[in-house]
Structures are given as C-alpha cells and as structure tokens.
Design a protein around this nucleic acid. Structure first.
Length: 528
DNA sequence: GGACGGTCTTC
DNA sequence: GAAGACC
DNA sequence: GTCC
C-alpha cells in the first residue's frame, strides 16, 4: 500500500509571528542559524520573502553593516519595513511571544555605522541556541508509531562522547552508506554547540524510567505514550512550574499533566516509586532483559516462583534462543567500544565484497548515531542494482560462520531468495570480535532498495536532537527507525513485493533533514 | 471504545 | 491462527 | 497513556 503522506508541515498560522512578512539578511549569519530562524518564523505564522518588496513588513539583520551590504538603502527607504536585529527573534522565541521591538531597531544612517556593538550581538546569538521547534502544539495526527523505542543501554550509559558520523552530501546511497569519518573532524570549530535547552530533565528522566517499566510489563502502548511525551517536554524553552503550562501540548493528556504537576511540586512521582520497590516488577524487568524472554514469559516464570537468573537456568521450558540469551547474558550486556565496532564493520564490508562485489554493508544503529559505545551491531545491507542482494545473506552468514565471526544463531529468515519475493532478509545472532570469545548481539538486515527508500543513517549524535528529529518525522507520517533507516512504506499489504512508493527516497542525510524541515547540521556540529 | 507496526518463531 | 518476542 |  502506498504510504499516506502529505499533510502540511507543522505550521501554526496563528503563531506569534502571524502576519509578518519577513526578509532575512543573510550576510554575517551562519547558514544553520538562518535556517532555524526561517523555519521558526514560518512555523509560527510568518511568511518569508526572497527579495525585498513592499509586502515585506520586517527585515532582520545581524548588524547594519550586513544589512547595507545586502540591501540597497534606497529600497529600504521606499518600502519602509521595520528593520530589526535577529536578537529580537531570539528573544521572542525564548519568551514565547513577541517582545517589544523598541530595543532592537536597527538604525540605518546611510553611512552605514551603527550603534550596536557587533561583537556583542554575535555573542548573544551564540549564547542562545534554543533550537528549532518543529511542531506547533496542535496540528497533525501522528500517523505511525515509532516502534523500537528501546531505551536500552544507550540511555543508561550516558557516557556519550559521540564521534561525528560522517556523510557526504552529494553521494548516492552507495556512498552515503560509507564509513563514518574517524574522530578527527571534531573540535574543528569552536564553541557554539548546538545545545537545546534541557530545562525539564526531572520530568523526562522519570518518564524515561516509566518507559522501561511499562515495556517490561508488556504495556507497550502506554510505554510509547511516555516515549512520545519526552521530546515534547524536552524541547520547551522554559522550566515547567505548573501543569497548566503543558496542558495543550500534543501527547500530554490528563494523566501526564497530573504526573508533571506532582513532579514539579514534589520532585518525584509516587507511581514510579511504587514500581521501583515492587518485587514483582523488578523481577519481571530482570527476566525481560534476557534475550527471548518477554513480559509474558517473565511473568510466567515469576509466578512459577523463579526470582533470579540462576532459577531460570533450571527451567526446562526454555527455547534454544532463550538458553543462549541466558548463557551469554553478561556477554550481551557488555558494551562494545566504538573503535571495535568500526573494525568489525570494516571486516564485514570486506567479507561482503568478496562474496558480492558492490554490495553495501554498513553498521547503523547507535554506532551510526555516533555513540562512544554500542550495545549491539546493527548491520544494514543492500545492493545498488536492486537485485543481487537476493540470496546474499545465506552465503554471507555461512562465510562469517566459517571464519568464526558469527557463533550462534537466534533468528534466520530469508525472503528474497524465493524468486519473486522481495521481502527483507533478516539474521539475528551472536558474534565475536576477532580473537575473543565475548559474545555480542548482531543483526543483519538486507533491504531491497525498492521497498525501503533509504533515509539518513547518522542522525545527529545527540539524543535530544534525535528525539526531536524522530518526532518530526513521525508528525509527518514517517518513521525513522533505530537503525537510521527511513522505510518508505511497509512492504506488506498481503503480498510482499508490493512496490513501495518511490516518492520517498533520499540519497543523503541532508535531503532528509531538508525534507523534514530540520536544520541541517554539519557532522562536526552535531555533538553536544 | 478502538487504534496506536511488521515479521518471525513457537505453540 | 494466536501468542509472544524482537527490532 | 493519548487521540479520535
């Protein structure tokens, strides 16, 4: 079934900038900033003009020098727009309403000097990095879920020193799916971390715990509701002091308001405290960490009287996969340093090339998102010609087993081999870093290019931004999955092989950012 | 009060 | 075909 | 849990 897309971008015609027609002087402004401003203006009701005309009500510039460099003074005189410093925008955005323009008028005496101190302005601009707001509070229905909101180790192991996943702009997929750049591009350019305000962490932290708990209990729906609420709360530019301030936000209903109210007044959430001290909840959560054991089975074991992982080992109803999950429980939990993932990716690419020249093999997931360490390997495979991926996975897996890279299987299914069928081949298993016995989880997915239009692979290396990015994608009816792929559509609908809409295909990350209206960040700009 | 994913394994 | 689990 |  073709994807239902469309839906206007999240624009609020009644937003605070409603009615403004804006011309932005680009001189002296980082293009990223500019994008953010432009986007915010549009989202909050303004329209932007590419050239100065009589329609224009406001002109923004960083200083008068820049202004005159780009605009003819005569035109300004003729059209008489209000000429303001960008700082007005920033301050308005921060306060959530239009601030008085008084302080921000950019006086232009035709000679070009100006009262404001340029360096000061720049400094102010640098300071405020309240980032793009993607969503206005109403609008858009969420059309599809983001599954896999695993808040696994990625969230716990906060020690993120993300590297910059690299990506070149103009490359077709085959090149986009190349290796992340080594860590050298970092700290190239100064300060100005693109750091969104994060003023409500007390709330999002608690919600994060609830996500895990509800998921362990098998209540994925509820869990997902909290998952969705986090980026909404997270992007607020102010510290919440009362539930009133969130009552109209998307994804925040009655219960969430109550929770927020309790958190901001007492600093904690009794509901969470109860969960955390409940033996049953704790035990089920623990059992659920074993690969292959989910909420239902965990509960069953709990009711049978099992309380520890040792107890579980004596359980005779375990499946093969569950036994493996138990046996390698500690191994699997061990995180893999980034550089090792990189080496393994290289090895996998090399091996793949030997079997099928031209094949695209890439490590996605948290590695691609620039994490300093990864919980597992998430390997994405495709082939540029759209056909020769068929049958590849079987040979590939065999080869990797021969060389003792792959050790144990968890799931292995192939759909691409049977002629007309163009499903997704999947392999889940355990692998080892060469010369070591420690098991790591590894997934392979082979995507026929026509079914999955590929999106970005790197995300941003910054969790807060990533959540927003995903939320944004979702608000437009798309799904951005954990591996970093953008499935164009579901390959389902009765018969696999139904052709996906080709309307959604991105050849590089920038296209995806643009498509979503997310400000483009160079790789080195993505880290906090 | 129903929807909120797609796919594979196991029963 | 339903339940359970995983991404 | 939220949205419709």
């Amino acid at each position: 079934m073709a994807p239902k897309r469309k839906k206007s971008p999240s624009i609020d015609p009644q937003g605070i900038f409603s009615g403004m027609v804006v011309f932005l002087v680009e001189t002296g402004v980082q293009s990223r900033r500019l994008q953010i401003w432009k986007q915010k203006l549009v989202q909050m009701g303004a329209t932007t003009e590419e050239r100065l005309s009589k329609k224009v009500t406001h002109v923004f510039a960083i200083n008068s020098q820049a202004l005159l460099q780009q605009l003819d003074g005569q035109l300004l005189k003729r059209f008489k727009p209000r000429v303001l410093l960008y700082q007005w925008l920033e301050d308005s955005l921060r306060s959530g309403e239009k601030v008085s323009e008084d302080q921000y008028h950019l006086l232009v005496d035709m000679e070009g000097e100006n009262t404001k101190d340029k360096s000061l302005v720049l400094k102010l601009v640098n300071e405020n990095t309240s980032s793009a707001d993607e969503l206005s509070p109403h609008n858009e229905k969420i059309k599809s879920d983001v599954k896999k909101f695993k808040s696994d180790a990625e969230n716990k192991g906060l020690s993120e020193v993300p590297n910059s996943p690299g990506s070149s702009d103009s490359s077709p997929l085959s090149q986009t799916l190349t290796n992340p750049i080594p860590s050298s591009t970092l700290h190239s350019d100064l300060s100005l971390p693109y750091s969104p305000p994060d003023l409500n962490r007390s709330i999002t932290e608690i919600f994060g715990k609830l996500i895990n708990i509800y998921r362990a209990l098998g209540d994925d729906r509820r869990s997902f509701s909290y998952y969705k609420a986090i980026p909404v709360v997270e992007k607020l530019p102010f510290k919440i002091e009362s539930a009133d301030q969130v009552k109209d936000l998307p994804g925040i209903g009655k219960s969430m308001q109550d929770h927020i109210q309790e958190i901001v007044t007492t600093g904690k959430l009794s509901k969470l405290e109860h969960f955390e001290t409940d033996e049953k909840v704790r035990t089920i959560s623990l059992f659920g960490e074993v690969w292959g054991i989910g909420p239902a089975t965990a509960l069953k074991f709990y009711e049978k009287g099992h309380r520890t992982l040792e107890d579980l080992k004596n359980e005779d109803s375990l499946t093969h996969s569950q036994k493996l999950g138990l046996k390698y429980f500690d191994d699997i939990k061990t995180r893999i340093p980034r550089h090792e993932v990189q080496e393994m990716e290289l090895l996998l690419q090399k091996t793949g090339e030997e079997i099928l020249p031209g094949v695209d093999i890439l490590c996605g997931g948290s590695y691609r998102r620039g994490k300093a360490s990864c919980g597992d390997l998430d390997i994405v495979i495709t082939h540029p010609d759209g056909k020769s991926h068929k049958g590849f996975l079987t040979r590939y897996v065999k080869r990797l087993k021969d060389m003792k890279f792959l050790r144990e299987d968890l799931i292995f299914s192939t759909h691409s081999e049977e002629g007309t069928d163009s499903g997704v081949d999947t392999y889940f298993g355990l692998c080892t870093y060469p010369g070591r016995e420690l098991r790591h989880r590894i997934d392979f997915k082979v995507y026929p290019r026509d079914i999955y239009a590929f999106g970005l692979v790197a995300w941003t290396g910054n969790d807060v931004l990533n959540r927003r990015l995903r939320l944004l994608a979702e608000s437009k009816g798309y799904r951005l999955d954990d591996t970093g792929l953008f499935p164009a559509t579901q390959a389902s609908g009765g018969k696999r092989g139904a052709r996906a809409s080709a309307s959604l295909r991105f050849d590089n990350e920038k296209e995806v950012f643009d498509f979503l209206g997310f400000p483009w960040l160079e790789p080195h700009e993505r880290n906090l």
